[in-house]
């Protein structure tokens, strides 16, 4: 198990967004987190990545205790993420976006930056990451000018620049068209094959059923079910939650 959360909870002003959730993500797997709107998936991801700190519970990346560790420190341990609502550096170029992702691997002494300026390190690697998500040709353009689907892919490339061992994606398929979802799916599988554990929060059932090894279902901030995609599809409680959720919302 690469990531292990035990009974973590988080409330906002009395509303229990995540309650008593325990989750264990096996190494080298593609692990999907699903649930109806408002189930607490994004909050859970924010707890795992360190944007929020849980009110209670324990959280470990392998042997390292993550509780109290701010988001930027968790990145150094090999955790990376993308956001549900895309958060790119919009005024910067695609290449600059990805280069910023190499921050934790920049280890030249400070005076070198003062004397030489741009060291050009990681530039090639940044370009190949852009190529990986199909954006190499636009590397000099501003990120804010990209169409929506490509912004999502750029965010993935940027996060990959941190060289994560655990890669968390918050609804990467939201707003993508069918072709783009297909491309994303292939890339996620490829990332998984390279030994990166993928944790994906997703609404798109096709994507989840095709790519995930294990699926964790949440509802109303609590765990509902965990199993393989096939098991999930046939679980009556999950079906009920989804149907209820779908009609209610």
């Amino acid at each position: 198990m690469i990531l292990r959360a035990k009974e973590i909870s988080k409330s906002f002003g009395g509303v229990r967004a995540v309650h008593n959730v325990s989750i264990a993500v096996p190494e080298n797997s593609i692990f999907a987190l699903i649930g109806p709107n408002g189930a607490g998936k994004s909050t859970l991801l924010n707890l795992l990545s360190g944007i929020y700190q849980p009110d209670a519970g324990s959280l470990h990346l392998e042997e390292t205790n993550l509780i109290g560790l701010p988001a930027h420190r968790r990145v150094r341990l090999g955790m990376a993420r993308t956001f549900q609502k895309i958060r790119l550096f919009r005024q910067l170029t695609l290449l600059e976006n990805v280069l910023a992702g190499f921050h934790i691997h920049q280890d030249a002494p400070f005076w070198e930056y003062l004397v030489y300026g741009d060291t050009g390190r990681f530039r090639e690697e940044a370009r190949s990451l852009l190529a990986f998500v199909g954006l190499e040709a636009r590397s000099g353009e501003r990120a804010g000018a990209l169409p929506y689907g490509q912004q999502r892919m750029l965010e993935i490339a940027r996060a990959l620049a941190t060289r994560p061992r655990l890669f968390m994606l918050d609804e990467p398929a939201a707003g993508l068209n069918a072709a783009e979802v297909d491309f994303l799916l292939k890339r996620l599988e490829q990332i998984g094959r390279q030994g990166v554990t993928v944790l994906v929060v997703e609404h798109n059932m096709d994507l989840v059923m095709n790519v995930a090894h294990r699926v964790f279902v949440m509802d109303h901030g609590e765990p509902l079910f965990e199993g393989t995609p096939r098991e999930v599809q046939h679980d009556p409680a999950v079906i009920a939650a989804y149907l209820g959720g779908e009609f209610a919302s």
């Binding site: 958060r87 992702g101 930056y113």
Partner: peptide, 25 residues
């Protein structure tokens, strides 16, 4: 020199979006 160096990338990243800058370490 500094702003063209990786330090500059990090500073600009913070300017553009602090939360995602933190998500890159």
């Amino acid at each position: 020199n500094l702003v063209r160096s990786p330090v500059g990338d990090s500073l600009r990243a913070i300017r553009e979006d602090e939360v995602s800058a933190a998500s890159l370490g």
